[in-house]
Amino acid sequence: MLQAELPGARAEVESLASLQHAETPLKRFVALYAESRLALVAAGVLVLIVAAAIAAPWLAPQNPYDLQQLDVLDARLPPGEKSAAGMTFWLGSDAQGRDMLSAILYGLRISIGVGAIATVAAVAIGLSLGLVAAYAGGRTESLVMRVVDLQLSFPSILIALVLLAVVGQGVDKIIVALITVQWAYYARTVRSSALVERNKEYVEAARCLRLSSARILFRHIMPNCLPPLIVVATVQVAHAIALEATLSFLGLGLPITQPSLGLLIANGFSYMLSGKYWISFYPGVALLVTIMAINLVADQLRDVLNPRLAR
């Protein structure tokens, strides 16, 4: 699972790149994006965070999943204290004697991994269903869209909550829950842009050339539906991470032995009033910075990729 997250994140970056070099060079996109210095900083921070998450096993002073390395006697030490074995807890330790810095790095891995995998899978499902709906029309379309409408009229947290209450905890289960609550956004986004594209001249032209439906769909219509999808997807990664954190906080998300950021915060939640702020403060900051960086990047992407705001 942890290996799988890497291609996920990369695929997103790649699709983003391939999108642009088709017509105008990547340079134009980069130049447009770089217009906002804040967005540039956010992108930099995001790259750093993802890199840190990927490199967690090499960066972290301790493997927080290996019970042999943990000692309950080191529990709840404030930042800067040394463990019994002589290691320094730069960000303190939690109730298990886990080094918070290591736990945050590994937690980022899980949070971002879960968010990215769920989003990529949901994009794939939403994209295909949205395209098919738009292209096929008729019964198929109304069936797909009925389901989409129905699902979007319910808050994601509620659907995820019921689903998790029914299937239980676990990384795989929370990913399934996140996919279930997300795919409809993409299906709707893709369908509406595909509907616009379908009636454009180039599709007309392709039809005249007797190209196969599948070819028209995937080679011609799909690339043009991607920009809005990317914007939605970026925002949704942030949403997925936040949703996972909330579900974990409510006790319905991930198992405690491999804590995500949300679960780390939830664990430290009970220590807030007693002044042991570091157990939930630092994971909270990590979560905040991650979500904020993604949101800022998404914001700028929206401006850059929105044709109506083209300057």
Binding site: A238, T246, I265, F269, L288, I291, M292, N295
Partner: peptide, 10 residues
Amino acid sequence: IFGFSLPTFW
């Protein structure tokens, strides 16, 4: 953006 990103429970 800040309000958007803060975890509610926190």
